Computed example of a mutant assay.
Amino acid sequence: MKSIIIAILACILIYVSAIDDKCLSCICKIESNCQPLGCKWDVNSNSCGYYQLKKAYWLDCGSPGGGWETCSANKACADGCVRKYMTRYAKKCVGSRTPTCQDFARIHNGGPTGCTKAATVGYWNKVNACYKSG
Rank of each mutant, 00 (worst) to 15 (best):
residue 59 L to H: 00
residue 59 L to R: 13
residue 16 V to S: 07
residue 17 S to V: 04
residue 23 C to P: 00
residue 57 Y to Q: 01
residue 69 E to K: 10
residue 76 A to K: 15
residue 3 S to P: 13
residue 52 Q to R: 06
residue 81 C to S: 02
residue 3 S to Y: 05
residue 49 G to S: 11
residue 101 C to W: 01
residue 79 D to M: 12
residue 90 A to V: 07
residue 124 W to H: 02
residue 40 K to R: 12
residue 125 N to S: 04
residue 125 N to A: 11
residue 112 P to A: 08
residue 124 W to F: 04
residue 109 N to C: 14
residue 69 E to M: 07
residue 57 Y to V: 04
residue 94 V to N: 09
residue 117 K to Q: 10
residue 48 C to R: 08
residue 65 G to A: 06
residue 29 K to V: 12
residue 23 C to L: 11
residue 43 V to P: 05
residue 15 Y to N: 10
residue 60 D to I: 11
residue 134 G to P: 03
residue 36 P to F: 08
residue 30 I to P: 00
residue 3 S to D: 08
residue 22 K to C: 03
residue 90 A to Q: 06
residue 89 Y to D: 07
residue 117 K to H: 10
residue 121 V to Y: 03
residue 65 G to K: 02
residue 5 I to V: 15
residue 62 G to Y: 11
residue 80 G to E: 02
residue 27 I to C: 01
residue 50 Y to E: 13
residue 47 S to W: 04
residue 36 P to N: 09
residue 13 L to I: 15
residue 34 C to S: 05
residue 37 L to V: 12
residue 53 L to I: 08
residue 80 G to F: 01
residue 78 A to E: 11
residue 2 K to R: 09
residue 69 E to C: 07
residue 78 A to P: 03
residue 45 S to D: 15
residue 10 A to H: 01
residue 76 A to D: 14
residue 43 V to D: 14
residue 13 L to V: 15
residue 28 C to F: 06
residue 14 I to Y: 07
residue 99 P to R: 03
residue 39 C to Q: 07
residue 25 S to Y: 02
residue 49 G to P: 03
residue 87 T to R: 15
residue 15 Y to L: 13
residue 105 A to R: 06
residue 22 K to M: 01
